[in-house]
Design a protein around this nucleic acid. Sequence first.
DNA 1: AAACTCGTAAACAAAA
DNA 2: TTTTTGTTTACGAGTT
Length: 392
Amino acid sequence: MGPIIGMSPDKKAESPGVVEERACLRGVCGTLPEAECAASPLATSLDRSSSSGDEELTNLNWLHENLLQNFTLGSPEAQSRPSPLFDIEGNHGASVISSAAAHARESVKSKPPFSFSLLIYMAIEQSPSKSLPVKDIYGWILEHFPYFSSAPTGWKNSVRHNLSLNKCFRKVERSLGKVNGKGSLWCVDPEYRPNLIQALKKQHFPSAHSFCTPPASPPSAFSPARHLFLQGCSLKESDIDAATAMMLLNSAPGHHSDPCDPDSPIDLSRPHSVLVSSDPKQDHNYSSSSRSSSSSLSSLDEAGCDSGQGRRAGSEGFHSDEDSEEERNPRLPSLTVKCPLPVKRARHESKLELDEELKEAAGSLLHLAGIRSGLDLSKRTAKSKKPEKHRK
DNA sequence: AAACTCGTAAACAAAA
DNA sequence: TTTTTGTTTACGAGTT
């Protein structure tokens, strides 16, 4: 989706367009000491490009900081220290820095350039237990996206709506003994994590993706050819790749346990974790059959690991034991259904592929330090080229 | 033009 | 009883 779209008429005033899209920077700054935020070379890059209104770069900044710091360095101590990219560009004038910081402060009220599903995903992934109750998801979003603090409360409805309808999220009962609090915990279905990562990438750089990725290319987000191309022509996707890679690393085996997965820690060598389709239709998978979105799970379905049916046969959600849940999710404890052989082969190949991806991810991160100064600020995605008027 | 995604609103039920 | 949580349906708008 576009960064700031789908607003109802009453929200128009709250989505002042591209300029405020820079406020995504604020999402980061909200979690970092302001001085550090201001001193970020990314912020200075923003400042330098601000006159040209390169909102995409801003998005990049946001993604860069938010993902790299909040996700990868999500620990408090990590957040308290400078970004690993902090020194990339060396010193900049204090006025430039303060200007960027001021700009970030100005744009507190802009809507995040992420869909709710991605916001939820980020919230859950950032939690130590990789699961959150709805209330904490609200809290995380509010904390990192102050826009919502002043937004109409309907966004909470949207969050719940997403949790319910989006296959990427699964409901887990609170652990025994923890009776405090209402409702269940929500976690990211590891099966769909790659889709969300993919969505995260595509959310910002759809055109770059389509341009750089051959139609018949393997689903790897780090194809060597594309990677080389990107190094030559644009930093943007490599940024995203790096951020995504960090998320992948963050989800690497042993990194954390996943309440949704009895076999946690998550093993990215699982087919689900590497079956990253380039099909944008797989980014978000609402289970509602009324939206015909079951077809959007084609690759997973074809892998024999997903029934393609909504998970809601009633309101049992994740814990339904009456429907085809076992077929739908081979990772459930009671599961006996196994993926077909071709899928197993794909697992093995995918694991090798993943290793390569992780290696390249590290390369991308290193690469970031080297070519940031060579940013092609003139390159924009189709979406960012759109007239900056509000929709509707 | 059609299918799709996404955001939003709303109604409703269940649980705390 | 009120609030929160979860589900479902519907619709509009933008995108592909």
